[in-house]
Nucleic acid binder design. Structure first.
Lengths: 142, 142
DNA sequence: GCTTGACTTAAAGTGCACTTCATAGTTTAT
DNA sequence: ATAAACTATGAAGTGCACTTTAAGTCAAGC
């Protein structure tokens, strides 16, 4: 059994965030001591890991709430959960795609600046000229 | 020259967002008609595309503001801009990494559910059992 | 002439995911 | 015995990126 602070240290979340997740029904019921202090079990910590994974995938809290509600209902909700996770997957693919597009553009912008920095006479370069140069470079590489 | 509404249609942003970006100094000065209506040029639209690319990479508004301020100062700020774009790049790499981790986990969760759905007797499966099954499956695949 | 619909502004409102605050009870160390 | 350090709660506050509202100007069509 772990105290709130210990769990905070293990997971990298704050105790406030843990309480927030619990309040939002993202957690199963957490055991309490006689003094009503929370006592997290190993499986609670794994549960938090699961939430952290979903948050990493930018799954909104209200959607995690949905998923958790199904999970707590047990085996009969597997189809619905499969459906939800499939949505997460589609979303993930879109996000990765977007980031990779941005990655390519950023990469070419970076090497463009590196080329420019080899010249010494950029003092007079206006933002319009830079943009045109950058676009021109892009076309050469196509 | 394009009207606010036209630009909204072209870029997929709302006119309100366009005004917001302008107010936050993410845009160079936009030309105005006699009636003080905004008249966006082709290069304004490309500028918006650039902002959209940065937003796609989850670059916060205040950082875009910084970048744009340097851009408007012209060629002497190339080193600083290179530095900023390099930060964007580092951040992008982290984000892509995180999403790919989530992707792998989601993928295995998905195929786990698909396996479970072939069984018909999941009615009695509690959330604890599911989690244990899922973890067990993971180990087999390692 | 009057409505419709485009545009203008500043300012207030929204939704999300926390975060901080105020208040109070409990345990531990000096 | 008193302070420090942990726990608890509900409620209010924060920061971000817009979004909506209110109040007005301008041009075109019936």
């Amino acid at each position: 059994m772990y105290s709130a602070k210990e769990v905070a240290k293990i997971t990298g979340l704050t105790t406030a965030t843990l309480r927030y997740y619990e309040k939002e029904n993202l957690m199963p019921p957490i055991a309490r001591s006689i003094q009503f202090y929370r006592q997290y079990s190993d499986s609670d910590i794994e549960w938090i890991n699961m939430i952290q994974c979903l948050r990493l995938a930018n799954v909104p809290i209200r959607s995690i709430k949905q998923y958790v509600a199904l999970l707590l209902q047990g085996g009969k909700t597997i189809k619905e959960r499969h459906c939800l996770v499939d949505e997460y997957m589609k979303n993930l693919k879109i996000q990765i795609d977007n980031l990779q597009k941005a990655f390519l553009l950023t990469q070419s912008k970076l090497s463009f600046y590196e080329k420019l920095m080899q010249n010494s006479d950029n003092e007079s370069l206006s933002y319009v000229e830079e943009w045109q140069l950058f676009k021109g470079q892009g076309k050469k590489n196509e």
